[in-house]
Design a protein around this nucleic acid. Structure first.
Length: 197
DNA sequence: GTGTGGATTATCT
DNA sequence: GATAATCCACACC
């Protein structure tokens, strides 16, 4: 069963924790690529110095962050990596969740073709850039609605209980001043597909 | 119109 | 630990 709109219409922290353990599915060329989300980060919007929507910044790039919860926000990082984000909350409240790592479950052979450098299963999608490559995420997916799309969506599996969630500060946001150390990164305890345990 | 730098990864020492 | 790869949105003129 697909996660409903109401799942996404919550704060980024709840959506980030709630996405752990759920299954991301991308249909590409008739093949189903899927895996369990095991690492996320919450970006809280205008007040969050690490967020692209900091101070209410609204540009061509950040526009979809202001859309309905469940919208996909893709951006290109370092000129090479497609980062997959899920918009949280509702219209005009630009909160988002970065999907940082996934444990592959379906279409693994297809993923390996897209990740030739990965020799271990745990290297295929253990990081936001790796995941973008393995799941064939591209900028054209920007703006897709996870709550209605048949190409890209999240299926409900069992939830991860709170004591299995590890909370740390976010990665790669050294510019974010007092927001650097906020505990907004979440991952499944003991999971081998997490980017930085 | 131009210059800058990043929510990263892989490979090198 | 250091560095290259590689792009375009953004800021500023």
């Amino acid at each position: 069963m697909r996660l409903p709109r109401t799942f996404y219409r919550r704060g980024a922290i709840e959506v980030a924790c709630g996405l752990l353990g759920q299954r991301l599915v991308h249909r590409v060329d008739g093949v189903r690529l899927a895996g369990i989300i095991v690492e996320t980060e919450a970006y809280l919007g205008p007040l969050d110095a690490a967020s692209h929507a900091y101070r209410g910044r609204r540009t061509k790039r950040t526009e979809v962050m202001y859309h309905e919860g469940g919208t996909v926000y893709i951006y290109l990082n370092y000129g090479l990596h497609h980062m997959l984000n899920v918009v949280a909350s509702s219209i005009d409240d630009p909160q988002a969740v970065l999907i940082r790592a996934i444990e592959p479950t379906e279409g693994i052979e297809q993923m390996q073709l897209r990740r030739p450098k990965a020799t271990l299963l745990t290297q295929i999608s253990s990081g936001p850039g790796k995941l973008g490559a393995a799941f064939a995420i591209r900028r054209e997916h920007n703006g897709i609605d996870l709550a209605t799309s048949d190409l890209l969506f999240v299926e409900q599996t069992s939830s991860i209980s709170d004591h299995e969630i590890v909370t740390t500060s976010r990665i790669g946001i050294d510019y974010a001043n007092e927001w650097i150390d906020k505990p907004l990164r979440y991952y499944v305890r003991g999971n081998a597909h997490v980017s930085v345990p």
